[in-house]
């Protein structure tokens, strides 16, 4: 399918940002979360440097609780594309048996995602991390710069962001500081889907409807992806036609009932959706400024 000028502009803008990151930083890395945005980002990065190989490594922060299908997709993608992929697990959190089931969503996210990311960036000395976050996802992201500065300790200060004029990104850092870079800042959820369709980009099939075993909790459909999810009294997994709008740790990511089995159907459904994309993310609901708090502490 041909691309319209809006998608072409977004594509060119993202490639420009990725190239600036490589040109300006000593040791950049691309965060790879296996989701649809990461798939688009990876495809753009390949285009930015073709025919040469990607000039940076990819980093996946593995919490140990991703959908099994995500991990299979990750390993297959890395193998097929010959990617230099680092998989990082917070060993300390693993030893302490931190999990979304026993520790609760907020401790799990703090230890296994936020702290793990900071550890991984420090350990490898990455000074810039490219990520697929978009401004239309959430209110605090809507406020964030494309080149988002982090003080030492990876902290974001939303009250004192650097001015960002035109496409002249100030990439200069003092010792200990780092940058998060968001090439998809100006993309919407629908843009991502239309681009995936136009470019035929492979994505995890969890985004498409299938019969999956789910339990309903507080009005949310949680998929029983393995036997680590304790079932409550009277709970019995039911097979339902569901799909996911975003992907995270499976006990923290709600499915939506849907019959959208093809990309055209997914796009049609996304265009007419009455609720936002991140509604299925349980970790966003802890309180009103939840995402901002996590971001200030170094969450992506």
């Amino acid at each position: 399918m041909a691309m319209n000028s809006r998608l072409r502009d977004l594509e060119a803008e993202a490639i420009f940002i990725i190239r600036e990151t490589v040109a300006e930083f000593r040791n950049p890395v691309m965060l790879y979360s296996i989701g649809k945005d990461s798939s688009v980002l990876l495809s753009l990065a390949v285009k930015a440097f073709a025919p040469a190989k990607l000039p940076f490594r990819l980093l996946h922060i593995d919490t140990g609780w991703k959908f099994r299908e995500m991990i299979e997709f990750r390993d297959r993608t890395a193998r097929d594309m010959g990617l230099d992929l680092v998989v990082y697990v917070n060993q300390d959190g693993l030893k302490r048996n931190i999990s979304p089931v026993s520790s609760g969503s907020s401790v799990h996210t703090q230890v296994m995602k936020t702290e793990a990311l900071r550890q991984a960036l420090d350990e490898h000395g990455f000074d810039a991390a490219l990520g697929g976050a978009r401004r239309d996802e959430e209110k605090s992201r809507a406020k964030e710069r494309i080149f988002s500065h982090r003080s030492s300790g990876h902290l974001w200060d939303p009250r004192n962001q650097r001015p960002e004029l035109w496409r002249l990104f100030n990439a200069r850092l003092n010792p200990g500081e780092s940058m998060r870079v968001f090439p998809l800042s100006n993309w919407t959820e629908l843009d991502v889907w239309e681009y995936i369709r136009a470019e035929n980009i492979p994505i995890v099939s969890l985004y498409f409807s299938a019969l999956r075993p789910v339990v309903e909790r507080d009005g949310r459909l949680i998929m029983v992806d393995d036997d680590r999810l304790p079932l409550l009294a009277g709970e019995q997994p039911q097979m339902e036609w569901v799909r996911f709008r975003t992907l995270g740790c499976y006990p923290l990511t709600a499915a939506v009932r849907s019959n959208a089995k093809t990309i055209d159907e997914v796009i049609e459904e996304t265009g007419s959706a009455a609720v936002s994309e991140r509604q299925g993310r349980l970790i966003d609901k802890d309180d009103a400024s939840s995402m901002e708090k996590k971001k200030r502490e170094g969450y992506f």
């Binding site: 209110k139 605090s140 809507a142 939303p158 009250r159 009103a288 400024s289 901002e292």
Partner: peptide, 10 residues
């Protein structure tokens, strides 16, 4: 409130 997305703003 739709646009004032930061805690200090609200």
């Amino acid at each position: 409130l739709l646009l004032d997305g930061l805690e200090p703003e609200r």
